[in-house]
Design a protein around this nucleic acid. Structure first.
Lengths: 224, 224
DNA sequence: ATCAGCCCTGAATAGTTGTTCACTTCTTCA
DNA sequence: TGAAGAAGTGAACAACTATTCAGGGCTGAT
């Protein structure tokens, strides 16, 4: 053989792969999953349509990786926030707030990742990622239950319901309008977090305190 | 003119229109909105593809009417259940339970109507219908607030969050599996209703009582 | 410098599905 | 019964996009 991949080439290939993924992400953030089409993505990434297929075997695979990437980031943020909290209830509040803030910071992208149309192959991948996030929330609820802060309950169902409430209230089509205004945004996050905590059984008064605690550190993320 | 529509013909036309809508509804119930394609719907309705266009100017229009029809039924059911309740809190509980039961009785259809892909024209219609249902729930929350049963809150946001929680927990991809089993189904409805009531500020103990009250009459609907 | 082998290109292909329309069939009424 | 007009048909058309592939260009060892 008279050709072998040089380190430089390997790096360029990796960069190109990232560029394609980033282009897909941008497209999704702008126009939802429907806007993630091979030709436009290729243009954004400065490659030809055919090149995309040298990096991803199919569009479904590309979208799956995109979803996995975004979900990974979100899960890590949730864990970080929750682990930094002083107790199980605070951790739950922090987790919920983190989801709310994340989802708000990229509404269109979140919508695409969470709910928009996709074919079956993608659904499988998406489902796995959502399960992980839901599982994380469920674990936090469970911890609070075991600590005696919450009544016993079906934590998996509760976690799913909480995520549904957050998503619908914040990024769904019925979500409030002016969420670009930081003050409104904070209000929305607080309101929804309060609802979520009460839903799993935190007393109203206590919930209000937890919300305030949780929203403070989360503010830093809003810019991100 | 030597031709005028006879009463019989008018009736036949109306029947055909209904048949097409029903075919679309069936298709959606079986395979989601993606399965609502002109050709298959036409076959189900025993007409040719072209005939569909004599009754609906476009696919978007057909789907919009389908959504409107289903939403109208749901809204009526919610109002009926809530109005029959003895007080504002019971009414809210009844409304929530009704949504839960309805959504469960036609999961695929509900999913399609609520969340699945559709083009812009349809989104507008869908949005209007969801707004109505959300508004109805908001009104019920508001009534309970005014009666002093609940803390003051952003009722519109709360209503949206509740609907999101219900949908995600009951028909979303993370929903529990064996909801065909009636016992499980009732458990799920109860659990989710409890979460919803607590979310808006009903005390745990009182919420449990309301749930039991609300689920009894709603049982009748499950078969429907 | 040279050439084997890989990467990239983008026009062509193929599959899907909404929509149209020339034609047929049916309904009404003189 | 016959003609006017409406309703129904379904094959053809059109638009959109994922995917392919034959050929051009670049990279790296000799």
């Amino acid at each position: 053989m008279v050709y072998r991949r040089t380190h430089q080439v390997v790096k360029r290939l990796a960069a190109r792969r990232s560029a394609i993924l980033a282009a897909a992400r941008d497209a999704a953030a702008e126009g939802g999953m429907a806007a993630v089409q091979i030709a436009p993505v290729a243009v954004r990434a400065n490659v030809a349509a055919g090149t995309v297929y040298r990096y991803f075997p199919s569009k479904a695979e590309l979208i799956s990786e995109l979803i996995a990437e975004v979900s990974r980031d979100e899960l890590a943020a949730i864990r970080r926030a929750a682990d930094a909290a002083p107790g199980p209830s605070s951790a739950l509040a922090a987790a919920v707030t983190t989801v709310a803030v994340h989802v708000l910071s990229q509404r269109k992208l979140a919508w695409g990742i969470l709910a928009e149309p996709v074919d079956v192959d993608v659904s499988v991948s998406r489902l796995a990622n959502r399960r992980e996030i839901s599982g994380e929330i469920a674990a936090r609820i469970d911890a609070a239950v075991r600590a005696g802060h919450l009544p016993a309950q079906d934590t998996a169902l509760a976690a799913t319901a909480l995520l549904g409430a957050l998503h619908e209230a914040l990024v769904g089509p019925l979500a409030p309008e002016n969420l670009d205004d930081p003050a409104r945004l904070r209000d929305a996050v607080q309101t929804v977090t309060l609802l979520a905590l009460r839903a799993v059984g935190v007393m109203d008064a206590r919930a209000r305190g937890l919300v305030v605690q949780a929203v403070l550190p989360a503010k830093a993320l809003v810019g991100a």
